[in-house]
Design a protein around this nucleic acid. Structure first.
Lengths: 132, 132
DNA sequence: CAGCATCCCCATCGATACTG
DNA sequence: CAGTATCGATGGGGATGCTG
């Protein structure tokens, strides 16, 4: 998940020039369904979180990826960042109205996957069996 | 994403997947929201497609990635592959009932993104302006 | 036509160290 | 506490060539 779209590398220029394959809608879809993006959005549906709280809640995300994910979601207007001017620093993250809409969609999709997981597993077994 | 009673949120599920790569739910979510997976599912909502038709319809997908995507979706029980024993080969791809459910979720998410794209763009401009 | 096999680049992500 | 900076390896995926 790229934080900046103004990247001047060769790959970046090629990609941003190719609006057919990497349309902006696709990028947003990627931001909300990406590994950490989805987990962050779903977590924030419950309540707001501080940075480290979120990190513990998700459990396996690196500091770097969490920061990057939150910045991307904030830039898209899905997450609100509230940095309080205190020592030690305290930053609260919450969903915007837009972000709540996105998070609910993502949660619905996640719940669907969970509900249908048994069917998927069965399909896989049959597929693998038919191959052998 | 599945919620076990002993673990109300996300951390435990991801953590328990450390033995492998990630939890199976996450993998399925990735299959249906991946770049080519989402496009394939949405295309197949309209009608069944032959391999090359699908390739032209999506426009920028490589042969390799389309084949790979279709196999993954077929293995998950979302896509049905109908290979007719004729020369030259003819293979039709269509959605299973399970796949149709997934495709509708993905389409809903895509439509939401499209609808809210203006708001996202505005949020980005404000974010970028505030940074400069 | 509908793929599979191979090579290889480089973007993504984890790990580590550092800072206000 | 809440990040930023840097580096290395891992693997996704495009390009190409071949097959039934």
């Amino acid at each position: 998940m790229g934080v900046r779209d103004t990247d001047t590398t060769l790959a970046g220029r090629v990609r941003s020039a190719d609006t057919d394959t990497m349309c902006p809608e696709r990028l947003v879809l990627e931001h909300v369904t990406s590994r950490w993006g989805a987990l962050v959005l779903i977590a924030l549906l419950d309540r707001s979180y501080r940075f480290s709280e979120l990190r513990r809640e998700i459990g396996t995300v690196s500091e770097k990826m969490l920061a990057q994910t939150l910045q991307t979601l904030e830039r898209d207007g899905l997450v609100h960042r509230d940095a309080k001017p205190v020592i030690p620093p305290r930053v609260d993250y919450s969903l915007t109205d837009l972000g709540r809409e996105a998070a609910e969609q993502v949660r619905a999709l996640s719940l669907w996957v969970a509900q249908r997981m048994a069917a998927v597993r069965k399909a896989r077994e049959e597929y693998d069996a038919a191959k052998a």
